[in-house]
Design a protein around this nucleic acid. Structure first.
Lengths: 230, 230
DNA sequence: TAGATTGTTAATCGATTAACAATC
DNA sequence: TAGATTGTTAATCGATTAACAATC
């Protein structure tokens, strides 16, 4: 039987693509037309084979002896990630973190277009944050359907997280970017991506402990290491 | 030769510990005294063997037939992560995201104490956000040394990221929690933990694409799935 | 004792890295 | 042609999962 399914890419590779994309944008802006894996690898402190494998998932082919055509590579990555045409997103929970993300312009770089915010607090409904309007949560199903929005960003307090997620699912959103620390229950057909700051902080704490054990001397060593770098 | 080094724990395990901790706090608050891996696993949608392996890195030992003593387990995890005694952190870059994090009370749960913010913008210096004062960046070395702070949160614009990181390293901070999308260069002795929202968004985009392929029908199926859950 | 659960040892799985052939 | 680089196949490594012995 013929295999029709597109082979799925390893998630670690997918996660690394944005870093390549960022560097490639920089190279393009500097007028560079071709680039080799070796160069990318050196710039990003990773192995060149890994770079080659990662780029391969986008379907790009390079030229031996030359490398990859930069604009072509950019297009391949953006196309693979679906970042070539902008996708809209709603944000649910306009507290301090939610408001900050609503006003954050950094998502535009990845063609993620934060359209509007939703909340249940009457004091927040109707206001605008950097041009993004805040609607009542009841409006979510209607607007999701009408604007064909697929992605929702969840920034409510932990206690309200599951209820808000249920509302997002019921409204028809197909992906939830979860900034709460709650383990959400959602149907299989809905993608949940956890930001999970606690997990990162755990890793940081753990690595810091190890690092302090290995380099106990404080200022002296650090300073000399910093000097060596520059 | 005797191995004195404490065996290092797998990072994936370390990252999962906060999720267990969260659940355990909940169980304790509900008056529960013991809990089995099976129970934790069911609650968190993971395998029970993985839970057992993960918990083992903290050094905890359970009782066959019974499970683990909840308060003891909480103490073991917190102790392992260094979350039992509060650690202080500085935040560099009080823009919209930085200000939001400075005002965010969620870090307290992990005993991370955000002490103060730093910035180079005179308009921001001297102000306070939810009781956290904003200092001039020049004050960073002195305050870091005097308060023995080890952790710095980096929330400056991308263009200023490497310079700010260099300043943090020079000031004596030993860990940088990097919220920018820049690949930072830092001496080996300094731990850098990247938040990397772009990587998460890439994973989300990728999984969403696959999910839409698998469940193309929009509203109908989703609704029935949601109904099934409740 | 019987049986559920822990803890450990072995098998599997997937990703990373190394080796090498193909190519311009 | 020679040599740098791509792309692929094989080997290694680490984490997850399965199997099983130990224990209360």
């Amino acid at each position: 039987m013929r295999e029709v399914e597109p082979k799925i890419a390893p998630l670690p590779s997918v996660r690394r693509l944005p870093a390549y994309l960022r560097l490639l944008h920089e190279l393009r802006d500097r007028g560079r037309d071709v680039v080799s894996c070796t160069h990318i690898a050196a710039e990003l402190d990773v192995g060149s084979v890994q770079v080659r494998k990662d780029l391969a998932v986008t379907g790009i082919v390079g030229k031996p002896r030359i490398g990859y055509h930069v604009p072509e590579l950019i297009a391949a990555i953006e196309n693979f990630l679906g970042w070539n045409n902008a996708s809209d997103a709603f944000l649910v929970g306009v507290g301090s973190l939610g408001a900050a993300l609503l006003g954050y312009d950094g998502f535009a770089e990845y063609n993620l277009n934060l359209v509007a915010g939703f909340d249940i607090d009457p004091a927040r409904i109707g206001r605008s944050i950097r041009g993004k309007k805040v609607f009542a949560l009841e409006k979510l199903p209607d607007l999701t359907r009408r604007m064909r929005v697929l992605i929702g960003i969840l920034t409510v307090p932990d206690a309200a997280a599951q209820a808000a997620a249920d509302a997002m699912v019921a409204a028809g959103l197909r992906a939830i970017w979860n900034y709460t620390s709650v383990h959400l229950r959602a149907p299989e057909s809905v993608v949940v991506e956890d930001v999970n700051l606690a997990a990162m902080l755990a890793a940081l704490s753990n690595r810091l402990t190890g690092s302090l054990r290995q380099w106990p001397a404080q200022t002296a060593r650090i300073k000399s290491a910093a000097r060596r770098r520059s």
